[in-house]
Design a protein around this nucleic acid. Structure first.
Length: 804
RNA sequence: GCCGAGGUGGCGGAAUUGGUAGACGCGCGGGACUUAAAAUCCCGUGGUAGCAAUAUCGUGCGGGUUCGAUUCCCGCCCUCGGCACCA
């Protein structure tokens, strides 16, 4: 019998699959239930596919193949998230236009992806940087604009005065200098576009409940959205006219209002100028200036001492009329809450630290802890709090809010930490924002018939102090030609997260004539959405996965989707490291899969990755065990492709049926490692007791999701002409799983002292007498009295004894 | 600091509801085949004691519940991932 040759076989089957169009999904097929199997699409970098890609894509594909065998019409598309910084930086360095380098990269990446042997439907692919795709990115922007969900306001960007360019947060080092140029990064205000994602905060929070997602990811999103319940409370500044001197604070602890001994405003707070006394003014202005040079990152990132300065002004605590000092400090942020807080040093750690430093009185208003030692932040009973005294924290909160509302001094409110989505990028390689400005500077949407609003070609990539699109003569001329003299184009491009927020909808339309005309066919969306399985890295737990949910909801509200949530089940693959470190080109520790593929083939390599450990755990890469999987493949092939005589019929059939059960259950839960173990055990037993010819068919199907080429090869050796992936998943016979006898463990005082084989239908009395005859058990029972007996049918019999 | 996940042989890992801890694989030791090697096949493989049967210790550390704990409870230590002055 010929030895299995993976390299030759894989080439052969990949060719056949492609020629026969086996994986082209008929989206209108009504004969089978649908299954939308999606992996997060990759960025087409110039590098080869690395182990991380394989670790992500191969198991995801195995799951898709399993669902196909289970009888589902599986849609498994693949595409490219091709806009973004790396291609632009490459262009700046080499002068090669991003569209050129991306085109080359996509071509090589497709070739490499095909070598994995996945069932991607390449007839329905997307590339976010193609005009056919970004036409819809612009269209989505315009839908949100029309719905009032896109707006402009001033926002600060990180500005590199040397490179004359805007920097992303990750390009700014913790010390506030630019990663590339080393210049001190400045803050610069620019008018930028935002999506009103905050309007969806509660819906994004509520929607999480229905999703089959890792709880870790849900918790991260909850924290990201950051709902907190509390109250707005109005304080009155002294020596400032009534209507101008109102300071509204947000607090989650209105019950501690009696303990507020000072207030803090953010340095940027508009009231600071009014409230500051003449005496303090020079010092306050100096402090504000010092804070202004710091980026928000520096202000919030450093584990530093709190700093602040007294304004010289006072405010009145509304609940008790106390006159309390008003300070400014950089630990209060203008961007969260109202930019002002009431400080309760007795019951808030930051306030405590600050009050200690500046010798501000600390007052205890909740019973518990030791205020001399530190803030008591837990809940408790209100004290020194007038009408709240004796109430527990939750009741005290309610009572205080009720009082504030009656007195018209405040209201109960819900606050979110989520901020609106800043989508303007002062970059070239992105989708142009489809907005034009009339001669007075008012924004107007580019009408649909002019979409795609093309990204101009005539630009310099080198930074010149403005968004690259600003230099395009073509874009300016185009704008004036269409809209009239004096009209100007928007020159910022969109955040690439916009592109990746709806690609799962566009896959459903890609490659069709209808898809060029319509964003989505609602019947198709209704049928195919939500995505049934979404697999991708945990690094997207917050950004991408919140943005995509938001866009989907917004599109639903615009009438372009019927489902609220785009991703029903989500799984994160783990990270593959090398010697404990993340693989990266800069560290030079990237391991290429290529040598393993050419030596062992794709099947062995992908199975080895799955066999390493749980899919969601990842792990540290080493190639030590790959020979084990290669051996297993040979043994599997030998067992199924040779004549075998069955030496023990019942054991042989139990071997098959138990494996069908185990492998199916394991793949269902994405426990590929134990599914492979089960198949190895099957082979070990099978080589001993044999396998009936009639069972071979079922067993090949079991390995098909994990090693698709191998399975096709054996399937054809068994005489089948059609692809194994057009067959079905085998079923098992429960009655064949049970052996005639069962091994019962015998314990004495909880320790295993022996075991007995008894007929499966033996009753307790039979088990007991068999157990008592075990030599070692007899020894331990000699001279002892059995005081208790525990019997777990099919498992164990346990005697509790005491010496008599 | 807060939130989350985890800690099991020489190594990767298994143990679905509290019921034989270490499946499966790597590695290692021994053997068969071979002139020899590779490949393949067979046997063994947590520590300690013992020729063995077996005993004893053993799932990060210290307690607890239980006939019985890797699994449940309390208190620590360490590693990894995320967030970070959110009022």
């Amino acid at each position: 019998m010929a030895k299995y040759n993976p390299i030759e076989s894989e080439r052969k089957w990949q060719k056949k699959w492609e020629e026969s169009g086996l994986y082209t999904c008929e989206l209108n097929d009504e004969s089978r239930p649908k299954f939308y199997n999606l992996v997060m699409f990759p960025y087409p970098s110039g590098d080869k596919l690395h182990i991380g890609h394989w670790y992500n894509f191969a198991p995801a594909d195995s799951f898709g193949r399993y669902m196909r065998l289970k009888g589902y019409n599986v849609f498994e598309p693949m595409g490219f998230d091709a806009f973004g910084l790396p291609a632009e930086n490459y262009a700046i360095k080499t002068g090669v236009h991003p569209s050129k380098s991306i085109k080359v990269n996509v071509e090589t990446m497709v070739k490499q992806l095909k070598r994995i042997g996945t069932m991607y439907d390449w007839s329905k692919t997307v590339n976010t940087s193609s005009p056919e795709y970004y036409k819809w990115t612009q269209w989505v922007f315009l839908q949100l604009f029309k719905k009032g969900l896109a707006y402009q306001r001033e926002a600060s960007v990180n500005w590199d005065p040397v490179d004359q360019t805007v920097l992303a947060n990750e390009q700014v080092l913790p010390d506030g200098t630019a990663e590339r140029s080393g210049a001190v990064v400045e803050q610069k205000l620019l008018k930028q576009w935002f999506f009103k994602i905050t309007a969806y905060a509660q819906r994004l929070l509520d929607g999480l409940e229905s999703l089959d997602w890792p709880s870790k990811t849900k918790i991260m999103q909850q924290n990201w959205i950051g709902r907190s319940e509390g109250a707005h409370i109005v304080f009155q500044a002294e020596d400032v006219p009534d209507d101008e001197g109102e300071i509204t604070v947000f607090t989650t602890r209105p019950d501690t209002l009696f303990g507020a001994t000072y207030m803090v405003l953010a340095p940027e707070h508009p009231l600071v100028a009014k409230i500051t006394s003449d005496k303090q003014r020079p010092a306050v202005e100096k402090y504000i200036k010092a804070v202004g040079t710091k980026s928000e990152l520096q202000r919030t990132d450093l584990e530093k001492d709190k700093t602040g300065i007294f304004t010289g002004g006072y405010a009145i605590n509304p609940v008790n009329g106390d006159k309390i000092p008003v300070w400014i400090a950089d630990y209060v942020l203008m961007s969260y809450g109202t930019g002002a807080i009431m400080a309760v040093p007795g019951h808030d750690e930051r306030d405590y630290e600050f009050a200690r430093k500046y010798e501000i009185p600390i007052k205890q208003v909740v019973k518990g802890g030791d205020i001399a030692e530190g803030a008591f932040t837990a809940e408790g009973e209100a004290i020194n709090s007038g009408f709240l005294d004796g109430l527990k924290t939750p009741e005290a909160k309610k009572a205080m809010i009720k009082w504030l509302e009656e007195e018209n001094l405040g209201t109960g409110v819900v606050q979110y930490r989520l901020r609106d989505w800043l989508l303007s990028r002062q970059r070239y390689w992105g989708a142009p924002i489809p907005i034009v400005y009339d001669p007075s500077g008012n924004p107007h949407p580019v009408p649909d018939e002019h979409l795609p609003w093309l990204l101009p070609e005539d630009v310099e990539f080198k930074p010149t102090g403005t968004s690259p699109l600003g230099q395009s003569k073509e874009l300016i001329e185009r704008t004036e030609a269409i809209f009239g003299k004096g009209w100007k184009p928007e020159i910022d491009t969109m955040d690439t997260f916009v592109c990746s927020s709806f690609y799962y909808l566009r896959y459903l339309m890609a490659g069709s004539a209808e898809g060029e005309e319509r964003f989505i066919n609602l019947d198709r969306e209704k049928k195919w959405m939500p995505v049934d399985m979404y697999i991708g890295g945990p690094e997207h737990a917050c950004m991408h996965l919140i943005y995509a949910r938001f866009i989907n909801m917004a599109l639903k509200d615009c009438g372009f989707a019927v489902h609220d949530e785009p991703f029903r089940r989500l799984v994160h693959q783990g990270l593959i490291t090398k010697d404990g470190a993340k693989m990266s080109k800069s560290k030079g520790n990237v391991v290429s899969p290529d040598e393993f593929i050419s030596e062992y083939g794709s099947d062995v390599f992908r199975m080895y990755l799955m066999f390493m450990g749980p899919f969601e755990d990842g792990g540290d890469w080493n190639d030590k065990g790959i020979t084990g999987v290669a051996r297993f493949v040979d043994r599997f092939y030998n067992l199924l492709c040779s004549e075998s005589s069955v030496s023990d019929e019942s054991l042989a059939s139990r071997n098959v049926h138990a494996t069908i059960k185990k492998v199916g259950e394991d793949i269902e839960r994405l426990n590929f490692n134990t599914a492979i173990s089960a198949l190895m055990e099957f082979v070990n037993t099978g080589l001993k007791v044999g396998i009936a010819d009639i069972d071979k068919e079922a067993v090949v199907k079991l390995i098909a999701p994990l090693a698709p080429h191998l399975a096709e090869e054996i399937w054809s050796v068994l005489g089948f002409e059609d692809s194994i992936f057009n067959s079905g998943w085998p079923t098992y016979d429960e009655s064949l799983l049970v052996a005639d006898t069962v091994r019962i463990v015998v314990q004495i005082n909880g320790k295993v002292r022996g075991n007995v084989d008894v007929p499966v239908d033996a009753d307790e009395q039979a088990v007991v007498s068999a157990a008592l005859r075990v030599e070692n058990v007899e020894r331990f029972l000699e001279g002892a009295e059995i005081v208790k007996r525990i019997y777990v049918p099919g498992k164990l019999i346990s005697f509790v004894v005491k010496p008599s």
